[in-house]
Write a protein that binds this DNA or RNA. Structure first.
Length: 324
DNA sequence: CGACTTTGACCGGCGC
DNA sequence: GCGCCGGTCAAAGTCG
């Protein structure tokens, strides 16, 4: 696997908080969101990418790019800690940009109404570490209860896998493992049917965080890496520079994709060719993303042509999003 | 020695 | 019921 860069200073200051690739020499040319029925700001919030609304132009709200000067002051200090208590997590996990999340909450409810998902999510079965209800309450519960992996050793039967909302990043890169500011532990790798490329499974290393991600390369276009995130981080990122959290990091990443539109950009951001982001709709969640990857890439391609000539904003903000 | 990856085995869901 | 396949476990190996 190309990505096993053990010697790579994975979480050094310089390389740890970009949304680019570890040590990649690739260069981002343009990154952009492609159309989606979801508001990316909400989507990202839902997944823990809590980008302030006023600076969320990059996320599909009003035009303009993230102004880091407006974001970072908001982050510093209290948010710098990587490991936060369940109590302190609550506001973040639960109420981030309430208004902007609403659509996502509704969507989540829709997902929950899906028989294949609802039963498990509502019952919150004692599924081992794969239980990924990362609500504040569950986070607190997790903190108060024994490590779930203890139970995991005994439980293997009669447990339903719970699917969290997920979304995929499609990135053009030679590097599989995109760095996103979190620490991940690989727990599996599987060959994917009809694809020459294996799919890798990662879990957030944070003890209370059940977020998972899958990484695979598109069989359609080997240069495209599909990173699917599932669940919400209930902690601040690990590996960001002091005073910076995932929001700022992600905002920086996105904004950097605009190519020099921002100050404070770092070389490490310009390491991949970000193609898009999409939330996997309920009916797709839980299905093989390999199938979707085709759609995603296709959508990206078509979007690309639409975005051509639309300038920097067009690089990352879907047209429809700009007319909000 | 701890953290992490590798990898074969196992399990559950799903389609036939 | 059976087989396929995706997802996960967990022991062993690797690395710093």
């Amino acid at each position: 696997m190309a990505g096993k860069e053990k010697g790579d200073p994975e979480f050094t200051f310089e390389s740890s908080w970009g949304f680019g690739h570890r040590g990649s020499d690739d260069v981002v040319n343009h990154g952009y969101f492609f159309g989606s029925d979801y508001k990316e700001s909400s989507m990202l919030s839902e997944f823990g990418w809590d980008i302030p609304a006023e600076s969320s132009g990059v996320c599909g709200c009003d035009g303009g790019f993230v102004d880091l000067d407006r974001i970072e002051p908001d982050l510093g200090g209290s948010r710098a800690d990587d490991c936060v208590s369940a109590d302190s997590l609550a506001p973040r996990c639960e109420g981030i940009s309430r208004s902007s999340i609403e659509p996502m909450v509704a969507d989540a409810s829709a997902s929950a109404s899906n028989p294949s998902i609802s039963s498990s999510s509502s019952e919150n079965p004692p599924e081992k570490s794969t239980v990924s209800d990362i609500s504040p309450s569950s986070a607190a519960a997790a903190a108060a209860s024994p490590p779930s992996d203890i139970a995991s050793k005994t439980k293997k039967k009669g447990q339903k896998r719970i699917r969290q909302q997920s979304f995929a990043f499609v990135t053009k890169s030679e590097i599989d493992n995109l760095e996103d500011g979190y620490r991940w532990r690989k727990y599996g790798q599987k060959a994917v049917k009809n694809s020459p490329f294996p799919r890798s499974y990662y879990r957030c290393t944070h003890s209370k965080c059940m977020v998972k991600k899958r990484i695979e390369r598109s069989s359609e276009d080997p240069s495209v890496v599909i990173t699917t995130y599932e669940g919400k981080h209930c902690h601040y990122s690990a590996g960001y520079p002091r005073g910076m959290n995932q929001d700022a990091a992600f905002a920086r990443y996105l904004s950097t994709l605009s190519n020099s539109h921002l100050h404070n950009t770092r070389p490490s951001y310009t390491q991949g060719n970000y193609l898009g982001i999409t939330q996997l709709p309920p009916h797709i969640q839980g299905k093989d993303i390999g199938d979707q990857s085709h759609d995603i890439v296709q959508g990206t391609t078509s979007s690309q042509s639409q975005l051509d000539g639309q300038g920097l904003l067009g690089d990352i903000v879907p047209h429809e999003m700009r007319n909000r």
